[in-house]
Design a protein around this nucleic acid. Structure first.
Lengths: 219, 219, 219, 219
DNA sequence: CATGAATGAGGGTTCATTCAT
DNA sequence: CATGAATGAACCCTCATTCAT
């Protein structure tokens, strides 16, 4: 399981970054509320008091984590690469695009799994965190997705008789179920060994679970 | 958001049930590790010491919750109704069966959401809890699903060119994404208003997101 | 180490005796204040509530122990046998009498060691307990000892140029140092293997640690 | 009863010393296991949490007490002065040496009685503590005593027909009986008023309780 | 009289937070 | 700014004691 965190590209004081990293790493093992400030300080290599120069309270560290997670998610995961894929490959077949997106996302999720795990566990219980996620991620995705979707629709690559958001949820649901199963219930999951599974997953996403009466959308 | 818990059908000492219920309700709000035994006691209407007559440690309360969740999940969710649906409706079309199952499951998940939320949040961090879930739920499901699957396959209702477990994951992923979105990001979600959405979801599960080249699997 | 307690000859309700016995046995292992009433109840084979029918508070159990210890010590240890030895053997040599007394006492102390250990540990801290010991044991001994002493003195068996009480303390000190060393710092001490040591001890008591310039008092 | 504790010469953080002193003083009144950390904190003038910066657990406070007791006992009681007395006075008569030693020891025991009382009461029940006492005190004494003894023996000042350890036990037993009686059963004991008693005690140690047939060892 | 479930004050211990250095 | 000793509220848990059965 990947537990490396890379906040180096963020513009933060060095110590603040170290504290956040430490907080994420330890929270990733035990959950945020079971993580103590003294552990964080030790792992970050600072004095316990120093933490409280950068974060008023322990809860604020969580908010710091959230902020970073969302910044990364928003800027790197969603926009950069997703946007690129959407735009640069718009003449490609949906199957190919989907696979590129999934692999790209998988790699990112894997890299930032510690951060996301903490985020998810807190989002389960805190409305305010969910709201930040909503307004920063989901809502920003919305526009991109609709554009991407209409592009696909125009090219006849995607069905147009259902709400685009349901289509997306289908994809995301499959994706999350895959991630969840691999991350939580499998030891030493490696992406490279899963390409066959990913292909099959995409086939199901594209063509559904009904028996294929005739070749659709595929090679 | 549904926060009613009903453990009344369980054969437990009255006080133990009350303690469990209180633990679930509060954990549902703040997470288990942020829930204190004194809060539990207060909400359960017992003295704090009484808790420790029924549960040796606080962690044992969590195990108690797990036990109940699994008992309910295993007996009610998985076996009773799922089994019934599988067996009694085996001549029906997959679309119909799927809808029955999803509605049935949705109703149950909704009812026991607090319990499951606590469970999920703990499973995120504790391998031992994941293992109990695995061995009690997932593994037990495995056999049922394979039987159900081969029944469907024999009747030509489901595609046979992919691993049955991937097919299931497709369904479960859609289901969980639906649940997650509704439970976490929607206020006052009501099942009855969502039947259209569920139908669309099932269509996507069955036929995929590719444009329908020709009618598949019905109506 | 002997941990059998025999309160059978005491005139007490059966349950009260069992509770006392249990309290002594467990206190002997951990000290009285680390012994819980529930442990006592379990070992005594009664319900926890029953204890409080016989003893108003836990402290009263200690008083019960004390009472029994002193009763036994006073009646059995001091009076019965000591008196007998004093009287019946008054024509014997001091060395012989001493040995009989020491062996007799050793045997008794060994038998009731658990009780005495608890007593000693409590007496270390509680003036009231020390007072009871004083008035019941030491003061009662006083008269016996003086009589015994003057009998010996009359027969020229004991030196008369020091306070009789100091003479007694010499004997008791030796005795307690012996007991203490054996009970606390020796595993599996057996009286029968210590007769040589006891003889040497008596020689030292009788003749002192100075080099013997000439045979005194015996063989 | 003497309840002054003086740890000032120890090289310990100020707070740690205060906590130890408080623990000793209160344990001296009620025994260690009846002493609460909150009492210790209050008496030491620190917050309860502070205790646990210096001692990981309450039991470690006891170990701290033991450590100090043994350090004091080993360095001051046994080595410094005892060694001095042994060496520097080796031409003196045994009676004189004994008296010096006893007075010296008495003064120390009196000064550190609270500490020793706690130690004794715990040693009664805890094998591990007895072992530390054994290996740190008794075993270290052993060599010194044997040397001292052979020196005396060479000069014909002590009897050589009994095990040196029994000789020592005779002395120690007398000493402890004296201490015990004075400390526990006498109010306001003062050393200076007891010199006559000590002389008599030494006479008994040296010459035994048999009537002096002929002058031995002096005056 | 005996029981043991229930109690709640108080036990040892942790930990986020403060502040003098 | 950084530190880490000090804090004390709050944590989980124990246990002597009560009382309805």
């Amino acid at each position: 399981m990947n537990v490396n965190i890379d906040l180096s590209e963020l513009e933060l004081p060095d110590k603040e970054k170290k504290i956040l990293e430490a907080a994420i790493l330890i929270s990733n093992e035990k959950g945020f509320s079971s993580t103590t400030t003294s552990e964080i300080a030790k792992r970050a290599g600072v004095a316990e008091g120093t933490i409280f120069r950068y974060f008023k309270t322990k809860k604020d560290i969580l908010h710091g984590i959230m902020l970073q997670a969302i910044r990364i998610a928003a800027d790197k995961i969603l926009l950069n690469s997703l946007y690129d894929i959407f735009k640069s490959r718009e003449q490609k077949e949906l199957r190919v695009i989907l696979k590129e997106i999934l692999l790209d996302r998988l790699e990112l999720v894997q890299r930032f799994f510690p951060m996301f795990r903490v985020l998810i566990s807190e989002a389960l219980f805190h409305q305010d965190i969910r709201e930040v996620i909503c307004s920063n991620l989901i809502n920003r995705l919305d526009k991109e997705i609709r554009e991407f979707y209409s592009n696909l629709a125009a090219r006849g690559q995607i069905r147009t008789d259902v709400d685009p958001m349901l289509v997306m949820r289908n994809i995301i649901g499959n994706f999350l179920a895959f991630i969840g199963q691999k991350m939580l219930f499998t030891d030493n999951f490696s992406l490279s060994e899963s390409t066959g599974e990913i292909d099959a997953m995409i086939t199901l996403i594209l063509d559904g679970i009904s028996p294929a009466k005739q070749t659709k959308g595929g090679d």
